[in-house]
Design a protein around this nucleic acid. Sequence first.
DNA 1: CTAATTAGTTACGTACCTTAACAAACAAAT
DNA 2: ATTTGTTTGTTAAGGTACGTAACTAATTAG
Lengths: 390, 390
Amino acid sequence: MRAGGLSNGGNRANFTASAKSVFRTLYASGPATRPQIGAALGLSRPTLSSSMAELDRVGYVEKIGEVQGAVGRKASMYRLGTGAGHIIAVDAGSTHVRLRVSTIDRRLLHSRIYRLPSNQRHLSSEISQAVAEEVDAVRAITEPGWGPLRAVGIALPSRVVDKDGDTVSTRQDYIFAHFTPRPGIPLILENNVNCAAFAEHSHGVAKGRADFVYIQIGLKIGMGIVLRNQLVRGRNGGAGEVSHLSFPWGPGLRPENAALETYVGSEAFLERVRQAWPPEAGAPPIDPAQLLALAEAGHPVAVEHVRHHAEDIGAIVSSAVSIVDPGFVVLGGGIGNNPLILPYVRDVVDRLSYPTQIETSVLGPDATVLGIELLTAEHACALLIEDLEV
Amino acid sequence: MRAGGLSNGGNRANFTASAKSVFRTLYASGPATRPQIGAALGLSRPTLSSSMAELDRVGYVEKIGEVQGAVGRKASMYRLGTGAGHIIAVDAGSTHVRLRVSTIDRRLLHSRIYRLPSNQRHLSSEISQAVAEEVDAVRAITEPGWGPLRAVGIALPSRVVDKDGDTVSTRQDYIFAHFTPRPGIPLILENNVNCAAFAEHSHGVAKGRADFVYIQIGLKIGMGIVLRNQLVRGRNGGAGEVSHLSFPWGPGLRPENAALETYVGSEAFLERVRQAWPPEAGAPPIDPAQLLALAEAGHPVAVEHVRHHAEDIGAIVSSAVSIVDPGFVVLGGGIGNNPLILPYVRDVVDRLSYPTQIETSVLGPDATVLGIELLTAEHACALLIEDLEV
DNA sequence: CTAATTAGTTACGTACCTTAACAAACAAAT
DNA sequence: ATTTGTTTGTTAAGGTACGTAACTAATTAG
């Protein structure tokens, strides 16, 4: 009853432990020679020989060249092969849908960006529509050299929960309004801020940090938490939902639900700025970017507002540091990225909490799609070599 | 150059993987028969036979009896043996020093409680003195049947950091004022609230919860966070230091360093209560216990104050839930334990944050020493079977 | 006392890794 | 061009840690 064709695809290859670790090494660290892998994993040459043969038999590795050391025979260079297949990663953002098709070891095969006709405040059927179209467009140009599709991942601008969580209040199911997952292909959903945090962990300023917190400050405010190199998601996908921090809060002050979101969100912030803008200071800024530009130019009123906002961000970071004490914080997002706010945030955290290194994100708008690519690739890799049955 | 005597002690036995997992099963789940262990681990009877022989050879297991099923031959019951040794766990508290001597599988061998002559606000040399005396007292009565001492653990009322953290501001080194660790015996230090949380995870209401938050409300306020069944400690041992949450905080309100500690601590709380106590309401309470007693009796002024305090606790819990969204929260400590505050905390968290089950601690004042016992036993277990060299 | 059932041991096979020895491929020295 | 030394890769042989199959041992039910 077996299909006579390719040896990969539906079958769950039963690799030896060494073959699995070799595959994972190539997945994680990219192309390498046998001696390099053997040294890294502490495996003997004969073991590497048989592991490579195992993986080559199903097309999971391929030779891409040779490297010559100072002396001695050339070593062959290997990477993951066509048989390992490819993944599709999508950032379903509120303004753009970004899509990357990559191999499991994250070599870019194809990339698309689609500008949504209108900004979407929340995950919506418009976004779903765009995602469906972009993914379909990939299907049309899929090349045989990409190998089988192993997984699809989508970064969502919403809380993401699995089955047992509170899935109603999340808007995550809107993604399925027009987009239909391909049967048999695992679909990974993840919150977009978590994705950006994870990208920062692999390619960005948080590289090598087992524990850190990423805070994204833009239209909305969100936080991604990585502890022991793993994302903290929370029971309801609500980990890092800092907009629900108790606020306002003090003697005689009663916190309100999600009050921080409306206070620190860029729209409310800008509205406060415009209200308080003195007529003699010129025309009030029309958007946060303009306010930041004025502040960068040294406009004293703008600077003062930016400082105040940065201190509020510092208070948020301090609260997070008080809870998880990560030792490292990355500021990202349209506002968080701005170098003006960094010193103020540092001052506040320094004053209120524990020694914490704070840096600005180095990844651009691709952070989110890079993060979901990583998470999707990890899932695909585990599927290929771990013994987890679907 | 080997000492001719016992086979255990300094040597690092090189067990098979199956023997290690058998040992860990007995460590984690207590006495069991071979068929039970085999079924639990998916090991065959011959493998169990040889694993047991391996462990028995160094005295790590011992037979303690036989059990008879419905039909068939009796099965032998095993547990960790004398050769596995024992541990000493100490709760260096501010009012008492509690000490437990136990086997690695947490069978109590000896227990002591010492009431400090005066309450200690912080970790002090007085506490260190008491710990040193209590641990020395154990040495005097140590029985041969306990086997070798494998590890000593101490729960401290301070932040605990390892080498690379900020060890200066911690008072953790006060523990060494009079207490000197035994050379060659690993010493485990852990924050006392983390210990209580961990105990709640193993023996308490949080049993089986991979993720939860424990909040202890008493003279001071502290939080222990467990994610993926592991304590979150933080870079500076500051995880769960909720007294550093941004407070007071609101439009026009500038958070102050550790302001929450002084606001929500029981002394400041009681002082506020006494200040606001109306003369016609009788004598104001002299301590929090009395205030709680009055509230339990229905005294309206007391009830109102307790409600207000409980709402502040709810705000703290909400902030923690906003950051890590554990789905489960345990209230402990002298005040947190009181059933009066539970409904108010639930209401606040329900209003401000995500669906979270909140319960009251079920463990008494032994929680902390039980927690450090667990952590120390885990360390000892890992030392015996994992290949980690000291 | 016999049959059925469960616990534990012995014999033996297999999977997966190792070391040892060898062959192949290369740079540098002769 | 040949030799020498080094590195890569393969082949052969061996060891360890498991498994299965078949046995013995101990117990209950009839």
